[in-house]
């Protein structure tokens, strides 16, 4: 694909990505690839690093990785879709991970998940249209004693019941309000 031929392309979810963003992602990917040898065993660490940098795994990045390792593209895609950690669409600004491990489930994690879904108006695995939040589930983050747990931006929060969901969202809203004021000023 010749990047010059088009000014916009579509990412995995069909959203349009600007040419600059695409070029930037490509640069980042190539930079990461340079630090890894061309061995198959590096595939998962590479994918992890690219996702950490770009937030998700764009199709172009997966193709670059396949070329770098000299393996079929389908092998990269197969690994990406096998593991729960990898995502094919861009994340929201804030990540919400509701724990549905045994302890959290039995203490009402499924009710908490419902509350998040209702408030954010999205399903698990989705991102809000304004790209503020993405919602997903995780199976035990190892602090079962604080069940039900929700991991908000990589920080586990204990005892998250529907009212605390509202509290957490309110805090984000206030923060956003404060930032908004700053830019206005």
């Amino acid at each position: 694909m010749n990047p010059k031929a088009k000014t916009v392309t579509q990412n995995n979810t069909g959203e349009e990505v600007s040419a600059e963003k695409e070029a930037r992602d490509r640069q980042e990917t190539l930079k990461i690839l340079k630090s890894f040898g061309r061995k198959r065993e590096n595939l998962i660490p590479i994918l992890q690093k690219v996702q950490a940098r770009l937030g998700y795994l764009p199709r172009e990045a997966m193709m670059e990785i396949a070329t770098h390792l000299g393996i079929p593209e389908i092998d990269v895609y197969g690994v990406v879709t096998f593991y729960n950690q990898f995502r094919l669409n861009p994340p929201g600004k804030h990540s919400i991970r509701v724990c549905l491990g045994t302890a959290c489930h039995m203490k009402g994690g499924y009710i908490t998940l419902d509350a998040w879904k209702r408030r954010l108006d999205i399903n698990q695995g989705e991102t809000t249209p304004d790209r503020e939040f993405d919602l997903d589930t995780v199976a035990c983050v190892g602090c079962c004693t604080m069940a039900p747990v929700t991991v908000v931006d990589n920080q586990p929060e204990g005892k998250v019941e529907p009212t605390k969901v509202d509290g957490i969202l309110l805090a984000f809203e206030l923060e956003r309000g404060a930032e908004g004021q700053k830019t206005v000023r």
Binding site: K39, R40, E41, N42, L43, I44, P45, L47, Q48, G78, V79, F82, Y83, N84, Q85, F86, V138, A139
Partner: peptide
Amino acid sequence: LFEGSGAFVCGEETALIASLEGKAG
């Protein structure tokens, strides 16, 4: 140090080994 990628079955030793080799576990 190798970080898993979130698949329960990778706790099984042969799946874990496949995962270390860069394959689906």
